[in-house]
Design a protein around this nucleic acid. Structure first.
Lengths: 238, 238
DNA sequence: TCAAAAGTGTTGGGTATACACCCATGT
DNA sequence: ACATGGGTGTATACCCAACACTTTTGA
């Protein structure tokens, strides 16, 4: 597009994944231990390189299927941004990454055996302390922030749940991702009133000691109107 | 990051710019006439290729300065997304583009003489009819939608105005970008009440025939709380 | 009968909308 | 004077946070 034909820089492009789920009341992210240099032995986000005939969305979907064993088409997957600082890879200064956010229900475990990489769930809070390779700390931060915003305006929260879930499950998603306590009665009304957000299956799930909760599945709506309001201040760390 | 060392695909990366401004009460976008194949002679978004030592943000900022003659640091510039469909460039299937949204005040004119490319402002509405090269129609659509959302939750609207502007100018930004009519009194209160959005300069600008309007400049706030509400239905096409 | 979680009712305060009205200036 | 756009006041409706309260189950 420049009229003077300048040598076009060719670069390698990776799709890196921030796969989030909720385990034991905490927000977890899937991380892998790197087998090769650079950063061999350190933790990093899973990812892979763009192949011929693929779009980056395809690359991300393929990697997601490989890492989690789940059908990528059924999971939520969306772009976070491009990370292209010249020094982000200490060996090859010309590797740029397109980051993707994926939301998954609490899987039994990632398919650890199928791939030599040690892929594990770790609480986001802990990962922030120990740190990740490359600029993956920054990517993780941006992806989590995106998830937080998306919860507010879209029906994304259902992607954290399985096919059937209770309103309590859904409320836990919001409380864990936002790190707040929400008022149960108001939350119940809010989500049941939102058109297309939830569809009652008619079933009920018994609780440990309490009234059984009605079961729902995700409705057709993608946008959440009116949006879910975020409390001004966090009440409890989650 | 794959453990089997597969040949890494190398691709060319471009930063394409959606530079928006408001002219004559319409939302305009800067487009260039392509000098080279593919799509020679057709309209396209301005853009340029990533160079050594640059991040894509740098590339976008450099291109913005070249196209508009303005200091890129002072203009709003943010990432829209990555476009990487394998067939998006009919010649080289491996050119991907990172799209950027830039907001500019109504410049006298882009520096047409400095570059052989014919860069001109065109109303977004008209560009939608005539179409752009590559997948730039899609990029334009996404960028405009991003701008619309950002107006709601951030103080981005001031980027459309010059250093000093009236509340009427600011209201026009919202009305043009959203394609709606806003209530003048309520808009005035809303933006003056929002902490950090506007700073009164003390000056006044005479109107053609009416009371002079107070002048403001952009305040330090980046987020707009509470958000600017978007009317349910458009009242007038703009 | 009690504990625990689900779910409903009700109320007060804040925010948006609609619109009447006043202000300041050029012609 | 009057037209024109800037700006203020005010009443109504709606939405949301808070919380009291009822329901339904297991122990």
């Amino acid at each position: 597009m420049t009229r003077t034909r300048r040598a076009r820089l060719k670069v390698t492009v990776a799709a890196d994944l921030v796969i989030l789920t909720i385990r034991d009341g905490r927000l977890n992210v899937l991380v892998v231990e790197r087998a090769n240099e650079p950063f061999a032995g350190e933790l990093a986000l899973p990812g892979g390189f763009l192949r011929g005939g693929e779009s980056l969305d395809d690359t991300a979907a393929r990697e997601l299927a490989e890492e989690t064993g789940m059908d990528a088409a059924s999971l939520h997957l969306e772009q976070v941004g491009v990370y292209s600082a010249p020094d982000r890879d200490p060996r090859d200064p010309r590797v740029i990454a397109s980051a993707y956010l994926a939301i998954a229900p609490d899987l039994p475990l990632p398919t650890a055996g199928s791939d030599a990489r040690a892929a594990t769930w770790l609480p986001v809070e802990r990962v922030r302390e120990t740190g990740l390779a490359f600029d993956h700390d920054e990517i993780l931060r941006d992806a989590v922030e995106l998830a937080r915003v998306k919860l507010q305006f879209t029906t994304l929260a259902t992607a954290f749940c399985g096919a059937e879930f209770t309103i309590g499950d859904l409320r836990e998603v919001y409380e864990v991702v936002w790190g707040v306590q929400l008022d149960k009665p108001n939350f119940h009304r809010k989500v049941t009133d939102a058109e297309g957000f939830l569809v009652a299956t008619g079933g009920k799930r018994p609780t440990v000691n309490g009234r059984p909760a009605a079961l729902y599945r995700a409705g057709p709506a993608r946008e959440l109107t009116p949006p879910m309001m975020r409390p001004r201040r966090a009440t409890q760390s989650a």
